[in-house]
Simulated assay, not measured.
Amino acid sequence: MSNTKYILGHFEDPDVMMHGIEKLQENNIKIYDVYTPMPIHGIEDKLGIKRSRLPIAAFCFGTTGLLLGFSMIYYMLVYDWPMNIGGKPPFAMPDFVPVCFELTILFASYGMMFTFFYANHFFPGRAPRVMDLRATNDRFVIAIDAKTNPYPDKINSLLNEAGAIEILHNERKYVSYE
């Protein structure tokens, strides 16, 4: 048991897996993570995962794009090269709206993409971190840290009672694709 880092409980059905999560939490067993091949509604609340801060990053990137667009147009049309077009003043706000809007959307979308890639370690040339490869296909996997939960027999029996079809004692943190 000293080499075991994670205990993996495999499930075929998401409802049975949710029941397994409840059963483990009732017995005060801390769940490291859950791997699923598809999104499951309500699993974040059940596991106690905090709300993502990605919208805050999107707002900051969007504000940066808005300020950059506004300052760029102001510098070009008012300060550097003021032109009298049709008798309108150089600082006509309705003319600024389309460019500011487009730069807001551009900066927010690209900023969110890069932030998401950075937060989830999706770098070019990096292999994906997957606890078990079958979790990307057809299995629902509950991973339990064996070091913080010192009773593997109790965990095995709880997973069996919950309907796990397979229980693995993983010695490595992640499986590589090679």
Rank of each mutant, 00 (worst) to 15 (best):
K88H: 07
G48D: 13
I155F: 02
I73K: 11
D45G: 11
V78F: 01
A162V: 14
V130R: 01
F122I: 15
I31V: 10
I85D: 07
L67D: 06
I49H: 10
H41T: 11
W81G: 03
G65L: 02
Y75I: 03
P94Q: 12
G87D: 11
F123G: 05
M38W: 02
D80S: 10
F96A: 14
F70C: 03
A58N: 08
V99D: 01
M72K: 10
D45S: 15
K30V: 07
M72W: 06
R134I: 06
L47E: 02
V34N: 01
S109G: 11
G125A: 04
F61P: 00
D132R: 04
A119V: 08
P94A: 12
F59Y: 04
M112F: 01
Y74H: 05
K30Y: 06
P55M: 03
D33L: 04
G48Y: 09
M93P: 13
I40V: 15
S71M: 14
S52D: 11
G125H: 05
E161L: 14
S109D: 07
G69P: 00
I85A: 08
L133Q: 10
D153F: 03
C100P: 02
Y79I: 05
A58E: 03
D132Y: 01
D80C: 01
P55E: 07
D132S: 11
F59G: 11
I43V: 15
F116S: 14
M112L: 06
Y35E: 05
W81M: 05
G163M: 14
G69T: 03
I31D: 00
K147V: 13
L77C: 02
K50I: 08
L54P: 03
A143T: 10
D145N: 11
V34G: 02
A92H: 15
F59C: 10
N160E: 15
T136A: 04
F61N: 00
H121R: 14
D95P: 00
K88S: 12
D45L: 09
A57Q: 04
P98G: 07
A164K: 01
K154L: 12
H121Q: 14
E44Q: 11
S157K: 14
I31L: 03
A162M: 12
L68V: 15
A143Y: 07
P90H: 06
L66K: 02
C100D: 06
N84P: 00
N120D: 08
S157Y: 11
A143E: 03
M83D: 01
E161Y: 10
K30N: 13
G62N: 08
Y79E: 12
S109W: 06
E161A: 13
D80A: 14
N84K: 02
F117K: 01
P39Y: 07
G48L: 08
